[in-house]
Nucleic acid binder design. Sequence first.
DNA 1: AGAATAATCTGTACATCGTTCAGATTTGGA
DNA 2: TCCAAATCTGAACGATGTACAGATTATTCT
Lengths: 209, 209
Amino acid sequence: MSILKAEKSRTNYHHGNLEMALIAAATEMIRESGVEHISLRAVAAQVGVSPSAAYHYFPDKDALISGVGLALFDLLADRQEVAMAAFPGNGEKAVRARFRALGRAYFEWGNTESNLFRLMFGVFCALDQEQTVAARDESRAWKLLQGSLDQLANVGAINSAVRPYGEILAWSAVHGATSLIIEGHLPEAAFESVLDALEISLRMVKSNE
Amino acid sequence: MSILKAEKSRTNYHHGNLEMALIAAATEMIRESGVEHISLRAVAAQVGVSPSAAYHYFPDKDALISGVGLALFDLLADRQEVAMAAFPGNGEKAVRARFRALGRAYFEWGNTESNLFRLMFGVFCALDQEQTVAARDESRAWKLLQGSLDQLANVGAINSAVRPYGEILAWSAVHGATSLIIEGHLPEAAFESVLDALEISLRMVKSNE
DNA sequence: AGAATAATCTGTACATCGTTCAGATTTGGA
DNA sequence: TCCAAATCTGAACGATGTACAGATTATTCT
């Protein structure tokens, strides 16, 4: 789970790679305790450095936390790619399996690493209204979703009337279900239902207006 | 926005209704600054009471915050009921308008009171795995959603194949879209798209397997 | 190589925070 | 009226985020 092993046993006065070491330590501590329970001082102590040292790389604690959160989006995309790789091929069956794997990987990441998931989609990683579209279009996860829906469309497993809504609907539903389940507002089994409903909806829709 | 006006000008030694006054003050301060930026001391000062006084009603700061969050679910349901009341009648048009109003009220609550929304669905108000189904079935918002979907089914505006998924899919999609928009991962216009997609999906689905 | 300069880290300090606890104040019932 | 319970204050403690002056190491220039 460590983003980068930047431990250098620290005999020198200079650390070597303090910025990454701070992010790695903060990630692990947030993972275990939640973002609301970590302190800059504890992270610095874990790395073996004085609290003030962190201020050379981050203007304040929030910046360190944001750094942690933003780095996590790549980890989530990694998980999704691995999950989809389990279903190779271009047939409808494989394409649909990959779509489900994409969503399920999102949920399982959130469910097993809920402290990290909360950080990623919490207020610390909020984007400006101007950044949002640009950041989304560049994000690996968004591209994976786009590609998966395109492939569904290619094999005729998704109706053209809803295809334009595909990304937004799928992401919203999967993200919402994950969040609600994590916080205990929906039971865990609800996620497969959302995948079912999503697949049925996208697939069987027939335009009649 | 104040849940309860419990200001008593405080000439006496005893406050009168300190518990509610603390919740009201904390609600307002969280609303303005976010849950991560409020302090128990500031809340107590706002009410005109010493910090220790709060510990007579709440075991710790987290309990006060949870108290604030849990009270907000009723406010959200209020908003939804008001929004739906704007479209009376039993025709398909009215029923569908109420369904959209239900979702839109959820989004607008989240979008205009994002600090309160984050609190409600954040870690401070997380439920145990045992509480989840019970709490959900008792929640007013869940009943509103159930009723709205039942009415859609009655007027034939929703296919029976997806009806069982209705609550979970709609809540997940609406909640997910709201969250993602609030944190800047989707543009604000995406919400109407989600409503469109949801309505189309639920309405036009034809079971063929 | 040696000296000047930049980069990096420490130590101390301060205001604020959550929380505890002993005791002051007020209320309500016998 | 007096006593007990309920309610609130005040002082205190350790921990936190952060600023700043200065110590230490690395780099560059001659």
